[in-house]
Design a protein around this nucleic acid. Structure first.
Ligand SMILES: [Mn+2]
Ligand SMILES: [Mn+2]
Ligand SMILES: [Zn+2]
Ligand SMILES: [Zn+2]
Lengths: 131, 131
DNA sequence: GTATTAAATAGTAATCATTATCAAAAAGGA
DNA sequence: TCCTTTTTGATAATGATTACTATTTAATAC
């Protein structure tokens, strides 16, 4: 995978943000540094980078995908009101894989804890988007 | 919520299927009993029923939503190749909620274990759909 | 049983996030 | 510099879901 200016800045900005942005949220941020970049380039690179395991694609909540520049194993909580995602600190050293009794023939690649809740913003009643 | 014929049969067929069908998969099944039903009715009722907590909406994998007539707490594994979802048996009596150290201000509604893997069909190389 | 009215349906159009396409530009050698 | 491959920007196409609306149905009152 070539190192293009666009790719580098997309990755840099994603890693800087701790918000798990959607493609278009990240596009708005990247556009400040690369005003001529195309939204398609953002989508394309997020896809390429996640295939390569350099970033993570988060597919909770059914509408827009979100992205995470932090690929270390960790858990997320998803806001059912607005779709925001936050990291959640969980007890150390738990093996989710080891909790499986019967994988029903699936070859399990990975396991994680997942949470749903209401984010601080939405608790205040600022449910701007409906996911 | 009124009990209409369509609503009743949609729920009945969803509960019968153990496959966590998509809206259109369920539509094909329901159509055998109600040949004049509209796909919009299936979508509408799946939405209503899941809002009411009578069924569960599963939003893994970023593409089509899947639905589960079994609302008892249990874990799922999602096939990264084809999108199929299966129940997974996990160790009894684990409180996922209790594993949270810092919810980062979120009011947590529920937690679950989630797995990704390759389903038996896709292991045989029959990856019909690409999720 | 018939009338009333609120809710649900069928059929279809609209939405919108994402993916595909393709000519032009850039990267990375030879 | 020249050549080949990859990437980009712009835009069209896709596809799952949601919105719309005239018509029908369910539930209730009479
Ligand atoms: Mn994260
Ligand atoms: Mn299930
Ligand atoms: Zn929120
Ligand atoms: Zn599969």
């Amino acid at each position: 995978m070539r190192i293009t200016n666009q790719r580098e800045i997309i990755l840099e900005e994603l890693r800087r943000l701790k918000t798990h942005p959607t493609a278009d949220e990240l596009y708005e941020v990247v556009k400040k540094r690369l005003p001529r970049i195309s939204i398609a380039t953002v989508y394309r690179n997020l896809e390429r980078l996640s295939e390569a395991g350099i970033i993570h694609k988060l597919e909770y909540g059914g509408r827009q995908k979100r992205f995470d520049g932090d690929v270390r194993p960790h858990s997320h909580v998803f806001c059912v009101r607005c779709g925001r995602i936050s990291d959640v600190d969980t007890v150390e050293g738990l093996s989710v894989r080891a909790m499986v009794l019967d994988p029903k023939g699936f070859e399990i690649i990975e396991g994680s804890l997942q949470f749903e809740g209401i984010c601080p913003e939405c608790q205040k009643g600022n449910s701007l988007t409906t996911n």
